[in-house]
Design a protein around this nucleic acid. Structure first.
Lengths: 230, 230
DNA sequence: CGGAGTGAAGTT
DNA sequence: AACTTCACTCCG
């Protein structure tokens, strides 16, 4: 089937079909199918062919790849450009599509709150657009957001360091070299803490993100934070 | 609307997330989510992403669509073991079986260091699993239940509570009702802590997982922990 | 030949 | 039934 034009009974007389195998690349071995009109014009897709033939030939059941009519293949209405779909939030806020910043806003509307505070970030003021939670909005005024959060960050980091000291886990401290040589490192609790130990208040540049998740049953607390150091 | 690539904090630094709305066809209005590696490679599904990341990143609770870690989704990827058994605590799933991913609770006692190659090519990371699993398995054996772990958990939680107290952010405390009514709750740094305040040592059941990630430049610390309460 | 965009089988 | 995953189409 390669490189050879064949007759195509499913089309009017004179039409030819050609199949060309791809020789290289990611799609090596796959093929492209082309059709040629009696006058030699080349067609590379079914829509293109359909446009050309217009109503004279119903290609609804025409399988472009095989060149045959496939009764089982019913015509499908592909042109459904609906612009009316505002079903973005039917009953449920659209957390999926929201960007991080906007999530913060939507989160507020439902009893969900996410805080992203980073002075170097563009995140900040969207919180103020959350209209349905006055109390929470209140808590996010910028002034205390910065000071409060950094204070929090410092305290929290120190606390973690302290906690680590209390841990019975051994400290091997081999993480530095590993960190130097690898693009990323996941450390065991006891290992990573080696790093934490060395962190002082002055080292902290900022808290980047803090999430706190509490499960429905409130028995699980999931804390998730990014901390940038100087 | 959503043609913009956004950072994805749940993945290592440099990864981007994109959501594209389908504009036409039968699935018009639906969306596709894509991720981009730091090198620009596009990922169109969670399995594809997982294959690429190998063991370097545990995507067990990663929600591909939202780009977030979803603790509640943890049952997803493996076959379930026996559904009910002698779980130590009533009404709550056994953590070690319900959350397959972190049966590697090794995280705690064992100074296991997981060095991960950031995927800049297609090399699989199976070797890493082979080499590090044994050590982790070793750590599972003990009932790490409430020895050093709880001490750590308690201290850490207390520390967080303290940190919160020091925060200048007001505490509105409206989160409880929200928690009762919603499948999940994301709390503001200042808000969620309302919960933390009430946590005493006796409340802590266990730390389930603690991850600490240190960026290549070692200027970013990413701490991620789950804490179960009684 | 690549790849964004879509279809549709597979999965839950 | 809806979502996820991946193959395929179509056009550059």
């Amino acid at each position: 089937m390669e490189r050879k034009k064949t007759d195509c009974p499913a089309l009017p007389p004179g039409w030819k079909k050609e199949e060309v195998i791809r020789k290289s690349g990611l799609s090596a071995g796959k093929s492209d199918v082309y059709y040629y009109s009696p006058t030699g014009k080349k067609f590379r897709s079914k829509p293109q062919l359909s446009r050309y033939l217009g109503n004279s030939v119903d290609l609804g059941c025409f399988d472009f790849r095989t060149g045959k009519m496939m009764p089982s293949k019913m015509q499908k209405n592909k042109q459904r450009l609906r612009s009316d779909n505002l079903s973005l939030s039917k009953g449920k806020p659209d957390l999926n599509t929201a960007l991080p910043i906007r999530q913060t806003a939507s989160i507020f509307k439902q009893p969900v709150t996410k805080v992203v505070n980073h002075p170097n970030n563009k995140v900040k003021t969207d919180l103020q657009r959350a209209t349905e939670q006055p109390r929470q909005v209140h808590t996010h005024t910028q002034s205390h957001t910065h000071s409060g959060l950094n204070a929090f960050a410092i305290t929290l980091l120190s606390a973690i360091a302290s906690a680590l000291h209390m841990s019975s886990a051994p400290i091997t401290g081999q993480t530095s070299s590993a960190a130097d040589k690898n693009p990323s490192i996941w450390l065991n609790t006891s290992q990573p803490l080696c790093k934490a130990f060395t962190v002082t208040d002055d080292d902290i540049r900022d808290i980047y993100t803090v999430y706190i998740y509490i499960s429905p049953g409130e028995n699980l607390i999931f804390i998730w934070l990014f901390i940038y150091l100087k």
